[in-house]
Amino acid sequence: MASIHLQNIEKKYGAFVGVQNMSLEIADEEFLVLLGPSGCGKTTTMRMIAGLEVPTDGQIVIGGEVVTDIDARDRDVAMVFQGYALYPNMSIYENIRFPLRMRGIPASEHDARIRRAADMVELGAYLDRKPGALSGGQRQRAALARAVVRQPQVFLMDEPLSNLDAKLRQSMRVQIKHMQRQLRVTTVYVTHDQIEAMTLADRIVIMNKGAIQQVGSPDEIYSDPANTFVAGFIGSPPMNLIDGVAQDGHFVAPGVSVACPAHVRGKVTLGVRPEDCSVGGESAQGMVYGVEPTGDVTYLTVLAGTKKIEVKAARAYRSDIDVPVGITFNPAHLYFFDDQGQRIRGAA
């Protein structure tokens, strides 16, 4: 059980900056998700916490102890890898036992702890199999058991579900969250999947190009995005971002015209989520570009000017293409961003 402090850490590979001047406080027992597109520095950040990469600059503190110069094997940290990283020559039992052996835990305790860990991930019946004889989901559960068995201070999970199919991913997600709550171990979880981030996290850290874009609870990230990157990254389909001009309390873009707060002026970007748009009305005018029924909702794409606007329409909505259509934006959920992409908040 430990909190983690990242103090101004930086990672450079030659001239390339992997992670720039990052500071982050992760509370004890917190489930923190690092979310971002590939190459944004999230995995590098995690590997620095693990001790597999040495930061170029800055300090890492785990449980009150500065660990920047401590080798990976001496930081009490367990990691689950994307590719499972099980030892192929050992049985699942021996795989789970390996960290106990390496850390000199008395042999008399091994069996009980291994069985407890295996039961936690429902793998008790497969202990004498080799990893090669297990399915992808079972392997990942074995990797979880190996991480759990030595009761580390910190769990690190590097896209643990991305090699699994969609259905398995959902059930593993629940299992991971349940386990984290049960064990109350500080967890850092890396993913590029926003659904995983939203469902698992206590707090989400959104990263892009090596820098933190926003830190917040899933609700905050979703309903109060700090900039256009966060707004466009979260949500499925993501927020509509429409470039236009605001003047005298009115925002105008090709095919779009809505009221806006008086302090919003000049070249701005309007953000509106598909679920805050409804068919019929005056906010935007355009032609139907496509209709995608998914079963529980229907996604409508409208071409307004040159911009495609996504609308979450009623389940039964159907239309042919190239039919004129009007859209209403919910005025309570409009977001405005300045020409740097930063959110314009409050009255100024």
């Binding site: 693990a50 597999l52 094997r73 994307q82 990283a85 030892y87 390996f98």
Partner: peptide, 23 residues
């Protein structure tokens, strides 16, 4: 990844060699 997993499991370089790489 397997070697890194062994490091995080607490294995020293010789232990990684004997238990993981060599087999």
């Amino acid at each position: 990844e397997i070697e890194e997993a062994a490091r995080l499991d607490g294995a020293s370089w010789p232990a990684i060699f004997w238990n993981v790489s060599l087999p």
